[in-house]
């Protein structure tokens, strides 16, 4: 059986809001490593990988590895019924085809349980080798989201280039072009406001803005975002979930035909 009690229930709500538009159905895996998910979008352009480590839960009990197939839209509907400050507990009996979400208000004066049907999902997991990236950019997540949103009103694709100058986001469309350059900036009041650029080699990659904008739905999960880029390889866009784990998106680039 499985019982996971998450005091910061709002976090699970945010996780679902950040992936439900990208992925329809996914297996949530529960093991000693943590509560995790790996799923691809229907066009096979993006993969989301989530890890919430056991230490982040007030109670993390799963006596064997369990994989639970869930429709993410349905799961999001259920989690929307939880308050942002609620404690959320996931429960599943061995061999059951349902999962129960229990929502407790912080003052314990309201307790709700929602039972959701599980589904069988055949999903193959991808192996992501450790890579040495040409460039790694860490910046405020809200700034990155703002840039992706702004550029998508001009064009459909974004070219992300890292040079000595900084990181450049460019687009081109029928009405014109747009370029946003962010330079390294560590002279900030709070560390999460810094832009840090580690460059081993200059790199330039093109991505669909529709996908980039979809990934930025994870912005409420973290003040910062990390972009790991290598020529000709998918980008890794990572939002760290404080003291618990991460949500990572692997996004395939556009390539020359």
């Amino acid at each position: 059986m499985l019982e996971l009690r998450l005091v910061q229930g709002g976090l699970l709500k945010k996780v679902l809001e950040s992936i439900k538009d990208l992925v329809n159905d996914a297996n949530f895996d529960c093991s000693a490593t943590g509560f995790s998910l790996q799923a691809m979008d229907s066009s096979q352009v993006a993969v989301v990988a989530l890890l919430l480590r056991p230490e982040g839960f007030e109670r993390y009990w799963c006596d064997r590895n369990i994989s639970m197939g869930m429709n993410l839209n349905n799961m999001a509907k259920m989690l929307k019924c939880a308050g942002n400050d609620d404690i959320i507990t996931l429960k599943a009996e061995d061999g059951s085809d349902t999962v129960t979400f229990m929502f407790e208000s912080p003052t314990q004066d309201k307790i709700a349980d929602f039972e959701m049907k599980l589904m069988d999902i055949n999903s193959e997991r991808l192996g992501f080798p450790e890579a040495d990236y040409h460039a790694i950019v860490r910046m405020p997540s809200s700034e990155f989201a703002r840039i992706c949103k702004d550029l998508s009103s001009i064009g459909n694709t974004v070219v992300i280039s890292v040079t000595k100058e900084g990181v450049r986001f460019s687009t081109r469309g029928d009405i014109g072009t747009a370029n946003v350059v962010c330079r390294q900036n560590t002279a900030v009041d709070k560390p999460e406001e810094a832009t840090i650029i580690e460059m081993n080699e200059p790199v330039s990659l093109t991505f669909g803005l529709r996908y980039m904008n979809s990934l930025t739905k994870a912005t409420p999960l973290s003040n910062t975002v990390t972009l790991s880029l290598s020529s000709g390889l998918p980008a890794v866009v990572e939002y760290r979930i404080a003291e618990m784990g991460y949500i990572r998106f692997y996004l395939a680039p556009k390539i020359e035909e």
Binding site: M40, V47, G127, T206, A252, P253
Partner: peptide, 14 residues
Amino acid sequence: TQKQSTITSFFTKR
């Protein structure tokens, strides 16, 4: 011209 690549062309299934 550019075309959209897929994730499965970069990473192998385990």
